[in-house]
Simulated scan of single mutants.
Amino acid sequence: MGVKGKLIASMEVKCSGHSFYDIFHTNTHHVPNISPKNINHFEIHEGETMKAISIVSWKYNEAGQKIYMRHLVEDVDPHKISITWKLIEGDLLELYNYFNVITSCDYQWTTWTIEYEKKTEDTPESLIHLGFILDLTNDVEAHLLEK
C-alpha cells in the first residue's frame, strides 16, 4: 500500500465563486480556449456536461510535459458548489494508485483539494499538479473578469 496524501489550496478570486463553478460545471468545453497554454483538449465521453457519472478526458501541459487523464465525475453538488473528479485512466496513474480532484467555490474563494495515494514512497508529492491547477485558476479568473 502506498503513502496517501492530500493537498488543499484556497485562492481568492475577484469574480464570484458561482461564476467560477459555472465554468467547470456547464461550460467546461470552453476551458481549452480560456487557458490554451495549459489545456490542449477536453472531451465528454459519456454522460452530459459535468453531471455525476459523466466521463471526461483532458490533455494538458504540465511542467513541460503533455499529460492525458480521463476522469469519472463522481459528484456534482450545486448546494456546496463543488465537483469531484476521480481519475480512471491516464499518465498520473503511473505514479499514483488513485488521484481525485475536488473543487469548491464560496463567494470569492475557490478551493482545490487533491487526494492521492503514491505507488511508492519515492513518488513526489503532487505539488506540480497543484501548481498547474492554480495556474489554470488564474486563467479562468482573468477570463471571467474580461466579461
Rank of each mutant, 00 (worst) to 15 (best):
M1K: 12
M1A: 08
K6W: 03
K6N: 11
M11Y: 07
M11G: 04
V13W: 04
S19M: 06
S19K: 05
F20C: 08
N27K: 10
T28F: 09
T28Y: 03
H29G: 04
P32K: 00
N33I: 00
I34K: 00
N38A: 09
F42E: 00
F42D: 00
E43T: 15
E48M: 10
E48Y: 12
K51Q: 12
I53E: 11
S54G: 11
S54Y: 06
S54F: 11
I55M: 10
S57Q: 03
S57P: 02
S57R: 01
K59Y: 03
K59A: 07
K59W: 02
Y60W: 11
N61Y: 01
G64C: 08
G64F: 07
G64N: 10
K66S: 12
R70E: 01
E74G: 04
E74D: 12
D77N: 15
D77L: 06
H79E: 13
K80Y: 12
I81Y: 04
I83L: 05
W85R: 04
L87A: 11
L87D: 07
E89W: 02
D91Y: 04
L92F: 07
E94H: 14
N97T: 03
Y98M: 12
F99W: 14
F99G: 01
N100M: 06
N100F: 06
V101H: 07
S104K: 10
D106I: 04
W109I: 07
T110S: 02
E115G: 09
E115S: 09
E117G: 04
E117Y: 11
T120Q: 14
D122P: 01
P124D: 12
E125V: 02
L130T: 05
L130Q: 10
G131R: 08
G131E: 15
L134A: 13
L134T: 11
D135Q: 12
T137Y: 15
D139H: 01
E141C: 14
E141R: 15
L145W: 08
L145E: 15
K147Y: 14
